[in-house]
Design a protein around this nucleic acid. Structure first.
Lengths: 124, 124
DNA sequence: CACCGTAGTACCTTTCGGAAACTAATAAGC
DNA sequence: GCTTATTAGTTTCCGAAAGGTACTACGGTG
């Protein structure tokens, strides 16, 4: 467990600053996609699994748990039958969506400027 | 190797879209920090290692190679003595800095709204 | 020739991540 | 009453990737 005690002002470049942990959480493919998937309203586990094409249930669970622990999303259980669990953004999570959406949109808008991904993979 | 052939329009939510690989590269702690560290001019390997507090040389090398492969940074070797290697942003990399800087800055600006990191770690 | 600085690599351990199977709770159908 | 279906995961297994520490390569300097 790393120490998380940065005095002075906050700085993501300081390994011991809590900012670093938060950046590590948000600067992550699945976190960025999951938060984006919740932007227009709560969604259930299965809906998120479908939307986040390619994610395994194990990783999705882990991602959602981390986001919940950090106060970015809420997890609400409806004890109906069958069981029903809804994930939704907290105010903090909703605010975090802005920079993440910007990143996702930048990627889509600029994808044609990147080299062919198959060629990059071969070169390794 | 995943297939990287998404026809139709581009979408980061599609696992087979090249967007997904690019998002995976950019939505990464070390990539976000490394590109930010190059924002105000070229830097050498050692300078980056110092700036990216906590990064090991191996991980830094891997991160820089991936960014280079994707055309986000340039690697210039100066055959001076001792050897001198300079990393700098390409135009594409410079453009990518904007959303990444926004994300880093959002984290710093909102860090006080997050739960205490030590408490989160204990709860696991 | 030992030593320095720079930019990495080699080796090894640990963790992550993916696929598939399995669980729990309950209800509907036969 | 037994089987099947649904939802939301968990468990297990295993290969891939991340990560840390120590070492190497290179050429000059003292």
């Amino acid at each position: 467990m790393p120490t998380t005690s940065c005095d002075r002002q906050h700085d993501v470049y300081d390994a011991s600053c809590p900012c670093r942990q938060v950046l590590d959480l948000l600067a992550n493919k699945w976190s960025a996609l999951a938060l984006g998937a919740l932007e227009d309203g709560p969604r259930r586990f299965g809906a998120l699994r479908d939307r986040l094409d390619g994610v395994s249930p194990k990783v999705l669970t882990a991602t959602l748990r981390k986001l919940e622990d950090q106060g970015l999303i809420d997890r609400t259980v409806f004890p109906s039958v069958p069981l029903h669990v809804e994930y939704s953004l907290t105010p903090l999570g909703a605010d975090a969506c802005a920079p993440l959406a910007a990143l996702r949109q930048w990627v889509v808008a600029n994808i044609d400027r990147f080299p062919d991904q198959a060629a990059v993979a071969r070169a390794s």
